[in-house]
Amino acid sequence: MTTSALTRVSEQLCFGGKQIRFTHQSAVTNCEMQFSVFLPPHAQTGKVPALYWLSGLTCTDENFSGKAGAQRVAAELGIALIIPDTSPRGEGVPDDPDGAYDFGLGAGFYVNATREPFVKHYQMYDYIVSELPALVEAELPVSAVRAISGHSMGGHGALVIGLRNPERYRSISAFSPICNPVNSPWGIKAFSGYLGDDKSQWVHYDASVLLAKTQKALPILVDQGTADNFYPQQLQTDSLSAAARQSGADVQVRLQQGYDHSYYFIASFIEQHIQFHAKFLVG
């Protein structure tokens, strides 16, 4: 199946629904992008709400699809899963000059880059917020009733995007998110590379800074494993909790004893996260 804008790469039946992978040409990232979609059985008879999932460093759209085990509960609840890639890719798209895993390809950090040579392609914030939903909702049986979630770098992206665009989403959740990237080694490297040295621009992409100042936060659920080797230095969950107390926002931060940073952790709690979102997505 090829629509006016989407090219199907693969399709499999899954829990009575369809797991599909698409490519399309992006005007925002100036390259071909790929993303995956799970359409529940309910999509055969009408439009369904969507949970957008943002993955972490080194991932593509296929990690969550194959490892999280999210399709069963999404099929039961009638929720589509929209799973974008983590960065632009392809010929001419710049990477980390040293080939490191935490910058460049697979590490777009869901920001709009302003520095050369990344500004032409690394516009992942606009891609996730505007271009991808418009495309999905025009071409697929998916409504504009949305929630957003993610893991690690993607948890950072979900929190920031949801906090900055409360009118576009119903709820937010995250696993092991980078909560305070302006003070995290990962965040400092990425923001310096994509945005430059002006730290006044960094705070627009920091969930803890945004949450502390918000007057209209969506319901938020965060799970963090206590055996995560990136907790607390890179992830700085306590900063998000402090910000929630400051703003009085509706934020649940759950420390899960003994869980690490892996997809085993995500698979253990993804059903609870989708059920959390269903309260706001499904009438």
Rank of each mutant, 00 (worst) to 15 (best):
H204Q: 15
V209N: 10
V203I: 15
K67R: 07
F191W: 09
G56Y: 03
Y205T: 01
Q252F: 11
S152Y: 08
I79E: 04
T237D: 00
H273L: 08
N165Q: 11
H277D: 07
E32R: 13
P94N: 02
L218Q: 08
H42G: 00
A113R: 02
I172P: 09
N30D: 13
N183S: 13
L135P: 12
S192L: 06
P40L: 07
T3R: 05
I83Q: 06
A68P: 07
S10C: 07
V145R: 09
G187Y: 03
H42A: 14
G150M: 09
F103I: 14
L159A: 01
E137K: 04
E62F: 09
V48T: 11
W53Y: 14
F35E: 09
S200L: 13
P97K: 01
P97A: 00
Y110T: 11
T29P: 12
A27W: 05
V282F: 10
D228I: 04
K67W: 14
K18Y: 11
A227V: 04
L135I: 15
W186V: 05
G78D: 09
L255G: 00
K189L: 14
V160D: 05
C14W: 03
L135S: 08
A107G: 13
I161W: 02
S208Y: 02
R245M: 14
I161H: 03
A144K: 14
A278K: 01
N180D: 14
F35L: 11
S192M: 05
Y231F: 13
L81R: 01
A68R: 00
G17S: 09
Q201N: 14
R89F: 14
P141S: 08
I270E: 05
S130V: 03
L135K: 03
A174C: 10
N229V: 15
E137L: 10
V136Y: 02
N165W: 07
S173C: 13
A74M: 05
Q123W: 10
Q275M: 15
A243R: 08
V222D: 02
D102S: 12
A107M: 04
R164P: 10
V209P: 00
L235A: 03
D238C: 04
T86Q: 08
